[in-house]
Design a protein around this nucleic acid. Structure first.
Length: 820
RNA sequence: GGGCGAGUGGUGGAAUGGCAUACACGAUGGACUUAAAAUCCAUUGGCUGCAAGGUCGUGAGGGUUCGACUCCCUCCUCGCCCACCA
């Protein structure tokens, strides 16, 4: 024995240099090989990465290396999502310019990627905070503006008092800012929006194209888009010209309407109550509950309250007049802000009606237990049979939804309509560290877009960072002052910057021509390489980033800039790594740094453990003990290389033990290949390799002096199958086995079906479903032969106690069950 | 409140209708060593038994089946996403 542990430090340095020299991770421009675009979500540059971050890149790198070995022309780029609040907040705190800290962090991260052995085509790096990149983010804004998909409006928006900025709905979690957890309040401000709602239906429909996305993610997007189909119905306000339109998905309950309730933000309120005797009180209610809307939006449970307007509305199906209320439980943004209330069949309406003594009218009866409006304790929301519904009485309620909708459309008193929960994407931020929105305000010409040839609108560097509710850019006169692109007169620039989700919704196009300065991306190249074959990232991006990217790609497709409708063909979302049961974070002081572990055990050990810890889509708890296990395993494999175990080259007949080892070798190839092609279950792939190593040792132990060529095959297979997971040590061992080329130029092994077959099979024997015995039978044996063998078995005879089995079930190649 | 997912040894997990607990961690005992580390060997779900074995066992209860961790129904617990969406 030469050394106690394998010399990982030398090995890892050596092979990293070699891969660099051979350009292992460089995409080949004109290669006949099939393309494979493997993309990891580009990270926000943060100072210290931990093993939880590492998981993403280790998974991705293993896939990349596997695909290289399978003979693909692989594109594996990396970049940085470099704009954003944390760098700016840090600048406010310690005075270091965001650009400096960000670029520093990028350097550190590149070193850490390298230390994990994660390989990228670094010539293609994109950094979203650099003008050569954000120039084209601004260009994308202008394209959306041109198409009428970027617009400005005054809106009641989520405001984070701590970050001093507006947040998108998606960035408000339980009423708190997703970044700093401050309570979010509401403010009315002029904001830029992207009209993503124009794409609601297509974003929903095209989910069907994404066969290789996790169902869970597709479902989350579907729910977020929130399509609901229903009917819009106009209710006339009695003794007035006002018409209130409401939306319902339960038009079958229309005859059960006993009142109508509108949002406290409904625009018709002033007109409706102008002559009301208790106008003051109504106004007071409206004002009070409007304030609560902010609290409501943050998820607090607010008691349902309402006030009678003094007006009545006419139900168009039966001309009944029902009272009109203003309520705090109607959301102005959804539907029409007015709801027809059916207390008998909607729980919210039921509670409200009980509280204010409003009528309850049953129109869908429970066939098993007829309802009595007086005695109901809660709304009846199941299906049933129509009652009190004019000509629809007696029909099952499910059928009447369509029938009543038809009837209302014929009578022109209602119209089928579709509503979505998806809101337009608010993209302006009152912050410095982002791409400036390329718009100009001229007193004469109004809002003007910056001319495309004047891009980029450079973010000035000399700036004061104190936040005060407006973009810090306001205090940079040399930035703000500009000439109007239309009339040439004095004008001022937009001082808001863009949401960083805009930066990240197109970066995957930029990797194909990162240095191109005439256009954002090369149409021919992106059409060749996109959609991305495999996208890998955290499930926390299941809604925002993935939805926005899909939207931008569809817009670019519609404008003819690209030829594909969806950016990511296949998506893999990996789970979190936890420590003490919770997500690793600096503030919780449970971070496991990868640097120390790599110093102690080397990158391959950290990689192996990370992949072995659990199925990669699941969350997993980090264990330092487990790392040691991975370390021991690699050393155990390393020792297989020792001279004393080198097999003799003399070829001879395969004996039984030798063919067992050969079978295991080929079964392992099969298993690992299937895991890599299917589920990415690296944990079971690695277990299978461990089993092969164990069997190889058993084989050597049995006949150390007479090992056949199947030993060499086994060892060579172990090394090549391990290569995607533990690339450095695999390379070194590959070389030690006498191979001249890199293991990544070697062909991935194919399993031999013949090697998997065996002469005899062991059949477990169950009696009444319980395992009682086992027999050996020739694998070619027919049912009769197996039956005979089973009935001769001593243990079977003992259990049968002289009885004859009623049935004998033989599952081919698997087991035998006797029913007594 | 709605939707989705999960629940298996002391621990991470394996098995998706056919031998439950592969593989690994941990633990216990042993070999080697002056000693330790490393390595190697053995044992390791519960109960019962000297043993062979028996018996129970995949959150709980029921069902389908020759056979259920796996499929169906009811319930419990945890996690994630959405949430006054009409």
């Amino acid at each position: 024995m030469t050394q106690e542990f394998y010399p990982f430090k030398d090995i890892e340095a050596k092979w990293r240099k070699r891969w660099e020299e051979m350009g292992l991770f460089k995409m080949q421009q004109d290669s006949p090989k099939k393309k494979y675009y493997c993309l990891m979500m580009f990270p926000y540059p943060s100072a210290a990465l931990h093993v939880g971050h590492g998981r993403n890149y280790i998974i991705g790198d293993s896939v990349v290396r596997y695909k290289i070995m399978r003979g693909y022309n692989v594109l594996s780029p990396m970049g940085f999502d470099a704009f954003g609040l944390p760098a700016e907040n840090a600048a406010i705190k310690n005075g270091i310019h965001p650009e400096i800290s960000t670029l520093n962090n990028i350097k550190t991260m590149r070193r850490q990627f390298d230390s994990w052995g994660a390989g990228y085509d670094w010539d293609r790096e994109v950094v979203s905070c650099l003008p050569e990149y954000y120039k084209w983010t601004q260009w994308i804004f202008l394209q959306l503006y041109k198409k009428g998909l970027a617009y400005k409006k005054k809106a009641s928006v989520n405001w984070c008092p701590s970050c001093q900025t507006v947040l998108a709905n998606e960035q408000v979690i339980d009423g708190e800012c997703e970044r700093c957890s401050s309570q979010v309040t509401l403010r009315d401000l002029e904001q830029w929006f992207f009209k993503i709602t124009e794409y609601s239906q297509r974003l929903l429909d095209d989910l069907q194209l994404l066969e290789n996305w996790p169902e869970r993610v597709k479902l989350m997007q579907k729910n977020w888009i929130g399509r609901s189909q229903g009917v819009e119905i106009d209710f006339k306000v009695k003794d007035s010209d006002i018409i209130l339109r409401c939306f319902t998905t339960r038009v079958d309950t229309i005859y059960g309407v006993t009142y109508m309730v509108i949002s406290n933000e409904h625009p018709a309120i002033p007109e409706l109550i102008k002559d009301a005797p208790d106008k003051k009180e109504i106004e007071k209610f409206v004002e009070e509950t409007r304030k609560e809307n902010a609290a409501d939006r943050i998820g607090a449970d607010i008691e349902k309250r309402g006030v009678f307007t003094g007006k009545f509305v006419i139900n168009p199906v039966n001309n009944k007049a029902v009272p009109l209320w203003i309520g705090n439980y109607v959301v102005i943004e959804y539907g029409t802000g007015a709801v027809m209330a059916v207390p008998a069949h909607d729980q919210r309406d039921f509670e409200f009606a009980k509280k204010y003594g409003l009528g309850i009218e049953v129109v869908i009866d429970n066939p098993k237990d007829p309802l009595d409006a007086e005695k109901m304790k809660e709304a009846y929301i199941e299906e049933g049979v129509m009652v009190n519904s004019g000509k629809f009485n007696g029909i099952p309620s499910l059928e009447t939804i369509e029938k009543i909708a038809d009837f209302m459309e014929e009578e022109k008193i209602g119209k089928r309509e579709v509503h979505y929960k998806l809101r337009d994407w608010l993209i302006s931020r009152q912050r410095y560290w982002g791409a400036p929105i390329p718009m100009i305000y001229c007193d004469k010409c109004g809002i003007q877009p910056v001319d495309e040839k004047d891009l980029p609108v450079i973010l000035p560097k000399n700036i004061k960072f104190k936040p005060h509710g407006e973009s810090p850019l306001k205090n940079a006169p040399e930035f703000v002052k500009v000439k109007c692109p239309k009339c040439g007169g004095g004008a001022r620039r937009e001082i808001d910057t863009m949401d960083t989700f805009v930066d990240s919704s197109w970066y995957f196009l930029r990797y194909l021509s990162p240095k191109e300065d005439k256009k954002p991306f090369n149409k021919e190249l992106v059409n060749k390489w996109l959609p991305v074959d495999q996208y890998i990232g955290g499930v926390e991006h299941a809604i925002l980033h993935l939805l926005y990217s899909r939207f931008i790609v569809k817009v670019l497709y519609d404008m003819g800039y690209i030829g594909f409708k969806e950016p990511f063909a296949k998506l893999f979302t990996q789970g979190m790594i936890t420590k003490n049961g919770i997500k690793m974070s600096k503030s919780r002081e449970n971070v496991v740094s990868s640097d120390g572990l790599i110093e102690k055990y080397g990158a391959d050990t950290v990689r192996l453990y990370t992949l072995f810890i659990s199925p990669p889509e699941k969350d997993a708890e980090w264990s330092d003990r487990g790392v040691e296990g991975a370390w021991r395993f690699l050393n155990r494999v390393w020792r297989l290389m020792e001279d004393s175990h080198q097999p003799s080259a003399i070829s001879r007949q395969l004996d039984e033990k030798g063919s067992d080892l050969k079978r295991k070798t080929h079964a392992t190839i099969k298993k690992v290949t299937e895991d890599m092609e299917g589920t990415f279950h690296f944990n079971t792939a690695i277990s299978a390799i461990m089993e092969l190593v164990n069997e190889t040792y058993d084989y050597i132990g049995l006949k150390p002096e007479a090992c056949g060529p199947e030993l060499r095959e086994a060892i060579q297979t172990v090394v090549i199958l391990l290569a995607p997971f533990v690339p450095h040590v695999a390379e070194e061992m590959w070389q030690k086995l006498g191979n001249k080329e890199s293991v990544f130029n070697a062909e991935w092994p194919m399993y031999d079906k013949n090697a998997l077959s065996q002469n005899t099979i062991e059949f477990p024997i169950q009696i009444n479903g319980k395992l009682r015995s086992k027999i050996e039978a020739p694998s070619a044996a027919g049912e009769d032969e197996i039956k005979k063998l089973v009935l001769k078995d001593q243990i079977v005879i003992k259990w049968l106690e002289g009885r004859t089995p009623k049935r004998i079930i033989i599952v081919k190649g698997k087991l035998v069950n006797l029913v007594v």
